[in-house]
Write a protein that binds this DNA or RNA. Structure first.
Length: 322
DNA sequence: AAGATTTGACCAGC
DNA sequence: GCTGGTCAAATCTT
């Protein structure tokens, strides 16, 4: 296909290298100028007024490289966006894994002792709305957090949307949490109605790092056993029903959640019904992939250019209008 | 019309 | 009584 001709990961790496080289070159020039500026300190003040111009000149190459790379990235995002039509690409996976070396951090794995949901949950709609009888007793005693993950938020596009993990979720609540700046969102599996899938997750933006989400998973997906499970995406892995649940527990530590192949499994799943625009299951995973990719690159560029660890968006939001 | 999100209220556990 | 988790009516999106 035409997409394969681009070899985007390689192009991207090349561009990144070029940008880094350019920045480093500019940095060196800048240092040299500072040294020479100190040496010429006794000369007229007008010399120093040239420094900004020289700095601009020194960084000109870098900026040109940046512009080029931004353009490349933009095209690459488009490419990623189109990849939902393609078989799983090992290069992409490697690239994403590389970029995510500090991405998802699994910080705990509790007992998988999923609660026995004997109550009305899973049969929520058995509740007689019209009746004024009290709600059925809710029990959270046995609800244990299966695992907690730290997931990066996209820096471009809609950063308010929690990261896609390959499953479709329906938001059923949001709550202000004491001592937290950001509210916690509650999601349950979209297939809860149909298949009684008990999976739930909580998503909360970290106070100290708004670009990270803490995602707590509860329950296990049973819907992936069904025919509607997000497992039909053709991938060149050992199994075409690849999903997080098919991985050994330990592998979740080596395969970050946000780039798990399950992300790709739902590609092309289509909007279906509902408010797709702002739901966690709305945009395709590849859109997020592009977000993450650009975010990681931006971060890398920041870190390579200075010690500034700011997470401010670096790239023009060229894809905002998509 | 169907399904999703929003949001105030309800409920359970501590 | 406080807090977090869930419900469900209202509203929105497609």
């Amino acid at each position: 296909m035409a997409n394969q001709q681009l070899q985007p990961p390689h192009m991207l790496c090349l561009s990144i290298d070029e940008v880094m080289k350019a920045f480093n070159g500019a940095k060196e020039k800048l240092l040299m100028m500072m040294v020479s500026s100190q040496q010429q300190d006794h000369q007229s003040i007008t010399t120093s007024s040239h420094v900004p111009m020289l700095m601009m000149s020194a960084t000109h190459d870098a900026m040109q490289q940046y512009a080029t790379t931004t353009s490349t990235l933009s095209r690459y995002e488009d490419h990623l966006f189109q990849m939902q039509q393609l078989p799983f690409n090992a290069d992409i996976q490697q690239l994403r894994y590389y970029n995510n070396s500090s991405g998802t951090l699994k910080i705990g794995e509790g007992d998988v002792d999923r609660s026995v949901r004997s109550k009305s949950e899973g049969n929520v709609h058995g509740i007689n709305k019209a009746s004024s009888s009290p709600r059925p007793k809710k029990s959270r005693k046995n609800e244990s957090v299966k695992e907690t993950m730290m997931v990066p938020a996209p820096l471009v596009g809609n950063t308010e949307i929690p990261p896609d993990d390959g499953f479709t979720w329906r938001k059923y609540g949001q709550k202000e949490i004491l001592g937290s700046k950001y509210p916690r969102s509650y999601y349950r599996c979209t297939h809860q109605k149909l298949y009684g899938c008990p999976a739930k997750k909580q998503v909360q933006r970290l106070d100290h790092n708004p670009n990270m989400f803490e995602v707590k998973l509860r329950g296990e997906h049973t819907c992936h056993m069904s025919s509607t499970a997000p497992s039909s995406f053709p991938i060149t892995q050992s199994s075409n029903t690849f999903s997080p649940h098919h991985l050994p527990a330990s592998s979740t530590t080596s395969l970050p959640g946000w780039l798990s192949s399950a992300n790709l499994n739902t590609l092309g799943g289509g909007g279906g019904a509902g408010a797709g625009g702002s739901s966690s299951s709305g945009p395709s995973a590849s859109k997020y992939d592009a977000d993450y990719l650009v975010a990681d690159l931006a971060d890398a560029m920041f870190n390579s250019g200075s010690s500034n660890n700011s997470m401010e968006p670096f790239f023009p939001s060229s894809k905002e209008d998509k």
